[in-house]
């Protein structure tokens, strides 16, 4: 059989192709590349995840106000639509970039790569990435950040942590927010802490209320800032 015969296939012939390509692994590799870029510029990064309304943006604003004289801070804000969050953190004193994911329910490493290119990383010490409000899909898509922080609030009820073990398993810090409303909501904070520790004994837990300015120092310590 000649080479030509080997290489040519007549119309309608079947060809099997081995691919062995892992799409989530591709995201993880991009996340590692993001980490290298951030490390090379000495930027510490925090991926902030949590449900819609848990208080992610309020906590970021709170930290910016407290830390803006210590660090040069930027925020990448992810949302399905609007630039409300980017504007809120800008008002608090940080540079911000909005990513609108459209129908996407999470940020991924490629989106962060593109957003990071728009920032002058040499002018930044601390980067918050506010993920899309969702406790499920972001767990599958690491972004390359140094810290994964999950925010839950007592207004979401007593089972938010135990019902979302995957994201808690990936969390370095779990914030239990709106604790000023715990009594009204009949939610036990100790129980939420226990749930988080059962799923991920290595995670740090912090109870906060942005409204009542409770727990800020503990949060800063937990984030090692």
């Amino acid at each position: 059989m000649s080479n030509k015969e080997i290489l040519s296939v007549s119309e309608g012939e079947i060809l099997d192709i081995e691919i062995e390509e892992d799409l989530l692994k591709a995201n993880r590799e991009l996340a590692s590349a993001n980490r290298k870029i951030l490390d090379s510029c000495n930027v510490k990064s925090i991926n902030v995840m949590g449900s819609i309304g848990s208080g992610k943006t309020s906590i970021i604003q709170w930290l910016i106000k407290e830390l803006k004289n210590k660090y040069r801070i930027a925020v990448i804000a992810g949302d399905v639509t609007t630039d409300i969050d980017a504007e809120r953190v800008r008002e608090a004193g940080a540079k911000s970039i909005q990513i609108n994911t459209g129908r996407g329910c999470h940020l991924d490493a490629l989106m962060i790569r593109k957003a990071v290119k728009k920032l002058d990383l040499k002018q930044i010490d601390l980067l918050f990435i506010e993920n899309v409000g969702n406790l499920i899909c972001p767990a599958d898509f690491p972004l390359g950040t140094h810290i994964n922080m999950v925010v839950v609030s007592v207004t979401e009820g007593p089972y938010m942590i135990i019902k979302h073990p995957f994201i808690v398993k990936e969390a370095n810090v779990v914030v239990i927010n709106k604790i000023d409303l715990a009594d009204q909501m009949e939610v036990e904070i100790d129980k939420l802490v226990d749930d988080a520790k059962k799923i991920n004994p290595l995670t740090k837990t912090v109870a906060t209320s942005v409204k009542e300015n409770m727990g800020l120092k503990s949060l800063i310590n937990a984030l090692e800032l």
């Binding site: 296939v9 119309e11 309608g12 079947i14 192709i17 081995e18 691919i19 062995e20």
Partner: peptide
């Protein structure tokens, strides 16, 4: 999430 193998109908390689 692995795309392992695909089978194609082709005109030519």
């Amino acid at each position: 999430v692995l795309i392992r193998k695909i089978r194609l109908k082709v005109n030519s390689i």
